[in-house]
Computed example of a mutant assay.
Amino acid sequence: MNSQLIDQLRLRLGANGLPYEIPMHPQLVHLTLGLFIIAILFDIAGTLFPIERPIFKFLALPAIRSSFFDVGWYNLVGATAVTFFTVAFGFFELLLANPAVNQKSDWGLSPGWTMLLHGIGGILLLGIFVAMTVWRGLQRYRWRKDTSRQVQWSYLLAGVAILGILYAHGTLGAHLGEEFGIHVTAAELIREGANQNILLK
């Protein structure tokens, strides 16, 4: 835990080791993941639209190919914008973390190494999201603006690969909460030897 940061900002930390009741980073992570996954899935759906058209016709669903790409584009922009806040809150909460030093995760990593890898990974993923958004924007507004298929196959493959990276990165984050109990109220109270029944009433 960064005591200097706490003193400088005059923070009053709660039972979970944060100045607010619910950790913000995990909440924003779910929003980031949801937006990015939807973006890639809808771009894939738009790309495969000629195959899907008979299904939509059979189900009497009015579907326009460009609409799939619109959803993909705007969700990607949203994911990238939200990720700036996700990373910012993540680093703030990591600075206030006070994990036990004698634990190991399922991957054999200490809390310190897990936090380091998760933090660096967050910055790298933010950069990747920005790069993907620029790449997607160039396809939408310049390179493929006059074609029915708005995205390149290489872009879709990159998106699927990033989903795999997000899974590994998210697992590191899950280790911080589930195995090390970072900013988990009950875990923090147990670590401090406090009476949970009294403090959580």
Results as ranks from 00 to 15, higher is better:
Trp107Asn: 14
Ala79Trp: 01
Val184His: 01
Gly90Glu: 02
Ser154Trp: 13
His169Gly: 12
Arg10Trp: 00
Arg149His: 11
Gln150Phe: 02
Leu28Thr: 13
Arg12Gly: 13
Val71Lys: 00
Gly173Ser: 03
Pro26Thr: 08
Phe49Val: 05
Leu166Tyr: 05
Gly173Ala: 14
His118Pro: 06
Trp135Cys: 00
Asn197Asp: 15
Asn98Phe: 12
Leu126Arg: 03
Ile51Gln: 12
Gly127Met: 05
Gly90Lys: 07
Ile198Tyr: 14
Leu138Arg: 00
Leu35Ala: 11
Gly112Lys: 14
Leu94Ser: 12
Ile6Met: 06
Trp143His: 06
Gly14Leu: 07
Ile123Glu: 10
Gly90Phe: 09
Leu95Asp: 11
Met115Arg: 04
Leu41Thr: 03
Glu21Ala: 13
Gly159Ile: 07
Ile22His: 09
Asp70Gln: 07
Thr171Asn: 14
Tyr155Asp: 04
Ile128Lys: 10
Met115Pro: 02
Ala60Leu: 10
Ile40Pro: 01
Leu126Ile: 00
Gly177Arg: 15
Asn102Asp: 15
Gln150Val: 11
Gln196Lys: 11
Ala79Asn: 01
Leu13Gln: 05
Glu192Asn: 12
Phe58Asn: 04
His30Asn: 07
Tyr167Arg: 12
Phe56Asp: 01
Arg136Met: 04
Val134Leu: 09
Trp135Gly: 01
Gly14Tyr: 12
Ile190His: 15
Leu163Lys: 03
Leu5Val: 06
Gly164Leu: 05
Ala79Lys: 04
Ile22Cys: 09
Trp135Pro: 05
Leu94Glu: 12
Thr32Met: 05
Leu48Phe: 08
Tyr141Pro: 04
Phe68Val: 01
Glu178Arg: 15
Asp146Pro: 04
Ile190Asn: 14
Thr47Cys: 01
Ser105Gln: 09
Trp153His: 03
Ile22Arg: 10
Thr171Ala: 13
Met24Trp: 08
Thr114Trp: 12
Thr80Ile: 08
Pro26Trp: 04
Gly34Thr: 02
Ser3Leu: 15
Leu176Trp: 04
Ala194Met: 12
Arg149Tyr: 01
Ala81Val: 04
Leu28His: 13
Ser154Arg: 05
Thr147Pro: 08
Leu35Cys: 13
Asp43Ile: 03
Leu116Ala: 09
Ser154Glu: 13
Leu124Ser: 03
Val160Gln: 03
Arg10Gly: 08
Ala63Pro: 11
Ile123Ser: 04
Gly137Gln: 02
His30Cys: 05
Ile6Phe: 08
Asp70Val: 06
Ala131Tyr: 00
Ala63Trp: 02
His118Asn: 10
Ile128Gly: 01
Gly173Asp: 10
Ala131Lys: 02
Lys57Ala: 15
Ile6Asp: 08
Asn2Lys: 12
Leu11Thr: 11
Gly119Ser: 03
Val87Gly: 13
Pro62Gly: 13
Leu166His: 11
Val134Trp: 06
Arg149Ile: 15
Asp43Ser: 07
Phe36Asn: 09
Val160Lys: 10
Asp43Leu: 00
Pro54Arg: 01
Pro111Arg: 06
Glu52Phe: 15
Leu116Trp: 07
Leu41Ile: 02
Gln103Arg: 15
Arg12Tyr: 10
Phe85Thr: 08
Phe68Ala: 08
Leu5Gly: 02
Glu52Gln: 11
Ala100Ile: 10
Ala158Trp: 15
Leu125Glu: 10
Arg53Lys: 14
Pro19Gly: 08
Leu189Phe: 06
Ala39Trp: 03
Trp143Leu: 05
Glu52Ile: 12
